[in-house]
Each structure stands twice: as structure tokens, then as C-alpha cells.
Simulated assay, not measured.
Amino acid sequence: MQQRHALGNPPVIRFRVAGCALLLAHLALVACLTLRPRDVMWVTAPNLTPLAGIRADLALGWVEAVSRIGQGLLLLAPLGVLFPLVGGRLDVSPVASLLRTTAAAALVSLGIALLQTSVPGQVADVDALLLNTAGAAFAHIAVVPAGRLALRRRQGYGPRVPAAAQGRTPTIPRVGIAP
């Protein structure tokens, strides 16, 4: 099926422009929250052991654990919706879209972790990378497939018809071959 988001389709262009603006605003907010220097007397060592920080949070109690894990999941969760919105494609494989979005969120989270190593008072945490990526993946799964379906219905995309159900290809009688 041919994509209907050529340059002449204003609704798709508006969605993509809005997505770009929201993506830039969200990334600016994330940069302000995560790359701001902290005035602390001492700094913990970087956490490079997967799930060690999550286990430590759980040892502090459920309330503290839910708060810290929730913050990690929610920090980059909007990227799970904003990256596909910027892409602007309606007819795409859900699995491929999820993999692309998750990989992009993981790269953004890795970039933040690497930049944090040069900021006073900030340390890298592999669990933050895992939680940020999982949050973006969960948001993508929860919102994007239903949103794409609604937009496809709104723009008149019908269900795909298999080639066999379309019937025989017409032939030109004089020539005897299909166009």
C-alpha cells in the first residue's frame, strides 16, 4: 500500500511539526533535570551493575522504591510516543516501530548517562538507562498502536485486501499481456 504522507498532506505535516516541537521541548526539560550540577558534599560511585540500584531501592521500602523506579520509568516515557509522531508513518510494522523507538530511547538515555559523567554531582547509573528505555517502550506499546489505528480510520485507510482476493488482473485483448 502506498504511503499517504506526501508533502501535499497537511494533517501529517502538522502532526510531524507538532511532534518535533514537543520532542525538542521534552529533551530540553530532560537536559535541565538531569544535567544540572548538584552541590553535594560527596558523590556515590557510578552504578555499573545492572539491577543493583533497583534492588537497593526495593530494600529502602515500597514507597521509596515506587517513587524512584517510577521517576526512572517516566523520565523518557514521552519519547515512546514522540519519536513515532515525528516519523509520521501510519502504515508501519508495530514490531519494527517498537524496536526503532526503543533503540532511539536507549541511545538518548545512554547519551544522558555519558554527559552526566562530566557534570559535578551527577553519576552514571545503568539502572536509569534500563528504566528510561523500559518507560519509553511501555509508553509506545500503550499509546502508539491505538493512535495509529485511529488516525488510519480517520484518514480513510481501509483494511488491507490480499492480492488473491482482488481478482484477476485485466489484460489488454490486442496484446494479451497485463499492463
Rank of each mutant, 00 (worst) to 15 (best):
Arg4Lys: 05
Ala6Met: 01
Ala6Pro: 00
Val12Trp: 02
Ile13Gln: 07
Arg14Val: 13
Phe15Met: 07
Phe15Pro: 00
Val17Phe: 06
Ala18Thr: 12
Leu22Tyr: 07
Leu22Pro: 06
Ala25Thr: 11
Ala25Gly: 12
Ala25Val: 09
Ala25Lys: 04
His26Asp: 10
Ala28Phe: 12
Ala28His: 09
Ala31Trp: 08
Leu33Met: 14
Asp39Cys: 01
Val43Ala: 06
Asn47Pro: 04
Thr49Leu: 12
Pro50Arg: 08
Pro50Cys: 09
Leu51Ala: 14
Leu51Glu: 05
Ala52Met: 08
Ile54Thr: 13
Ile54Tyr: 03
Leu58Cys: 15
Ala59Asp: 15
Leu60Arg: 15
Val63Thr: 14
Glu64Leu: 12
Ala65Lys: 07
Ser67Thr: 12
Arg68Gly: 03
Ile69Phe: 09
Gly70Arg: 09
Leu73Ala: 12
Leu73Phe: 10
Leu76Tyr: 03
Leu76Phe: 13
Leu76Met: 14
Leu76Trp: 02
Ala77Asn: 04
Gly80Ile: 12
Val81Ala: 15
Val81Asn: 05
Gly87Gln: 12
Arg89Lys: 13
Arg89Leu: 08
Arg89Tyr: 11
Leu90Trp: 09
Asp91Asn: 12
Val92Tyr: 02
Pro94Trp: 11
Val95Ser: 11
Ala103Asp: 03
Ala103Phe: 10
Ala104Gln: 10
Ala106Thr: 06
Ala106Met: 14
Leu107Ser: 14
Leu107Gln: 10
Leu110Asp: 00
Ile112Asn: 05
Ile112His: 01
Pro120Leu: 02
Pro120Val: 02
Asp127Ser: 09
Ala128Thr: 12
Ala128Asn: 15
Leu129Asp: 01
Leu131Gly: 04
Leu131Trp: 03
Gly135Asp: 04
Ala136Glu: 05
Ala137Pro: 02
